[in-house]
Design a protein around this nucleic acid. Structure first.
Lengths: 162, 162
DNA sequence: TATTGTTATACTCTATAACTATA
DNA sequence: TATAGTTATAGAGTATAACAATA
């Protein structure tokens, strides 16, 4: 098989595996934590951030969201008591989102089953060297795509008339 | 870095790369062919099938759609003249969807730019052996996920009370 | 003037359930 | 009875544009 055909094969396999894995983990976070996947991702990002806090704009950019989309999800998470939004200390325009104890509890409840599902659906067919190779190549692809796909902030600047 | 951490890294890189690549190609098929990505996928599947035809149920299963979701997309594609639905010859319950000449034209117009976008966003950071490895591992993952995630038909049977 | 965040609004996608028709 | 497909309906997610407030 020539290289071009290999590329197309890899690309479609990637997209389809992505759709299927989405369905799998969507289901898991819904069942085990009553969360949508976008909500799970936001919680996981916050939990990983220093102090469990991030500025709304940075969170939107990091999660590939428009700001309005993030505001929508943040409202749902805040109504559920899983995050809290407060004015930022040094810039009164900004809002800082922080994961709450309840948010961390939910995440702790969901994570084990989540990793189990991913292990079963994804890693069970790979050996250690393949996992290593995937971590390397997919990180490179992700970084490359970040440079190509405009962030929420960049899209907004463009729309404003730049 | 231990293997578990490597796995988590690979998983999140995979999901984020998937989201970003979606944004990139969504945009491309919209601009170049006035298609949504789900519509592009359906056209590409049909174009690849023998005679450019597939039964609706098989198309739904292969594209990870519910049947109603497929009916919706099929109506849009048919209204645009890109596919045509006709009763199946040997089973009057079934409907066969076929890509039209106009559908093939659109696909021919979109594909080069599509592969270009994927090349730039995805393959430009990979060497030949990495592409080869990705094709192998991602195909295995996709096949594994297909066994785990119920198809549209299976989900329907379950809902009916099987 | 530029940036931050929210909201009003509209649109796309998807699914469940109910329905018709055929095997 | 089981399967194929459609439609009515509803809900989630996202984006654009308009807005208010602060830098």
């Amino acid at each position: 098989m020539d290289l071009d055909a290999r590329r197309i094969e890899a690309y479609f396999a990637f997209m389809e595996a992505g759709s299927l894995l989405q369905l799998l983990v969507d289901d898991q976070v819904r069942r085990d934590g009553n969360l949508s996947y976008p909500q799970f991702v936001l919680l996981a990002r916050l939990a990983d951030a220093p102090d469990g806090r991030m500025r709304m704009t940075d969170l939107a950019d990091s999660a590939v969201h428009s700001r309005s989309g993030l505001s929508y999800q943040a409202r749902l998470l805040e109504d559920a008591g899983l995050i809290q939004r407060t004015p930022s200390p040094h810039d009164d325009r900004s809002v800082t989102a922080a994961i709450t104890d309840a948010g961390r509890d939910i995440l702790a409840r969901v994570m084990p089953g989540h990793l189990d599902a991913v292990r079963q659906g994804f890693f069970s067919v790979l050996d250690d060297s393949q996992v290593e190779a995937l971590a390397v190549t997919l990180s490179a692809v992700r970084d490359r795509l970040r440079t190509l796909v405009p962030s929420a902030t960049q899209r907004r600047r463009k729309a404003a008339g730049g």
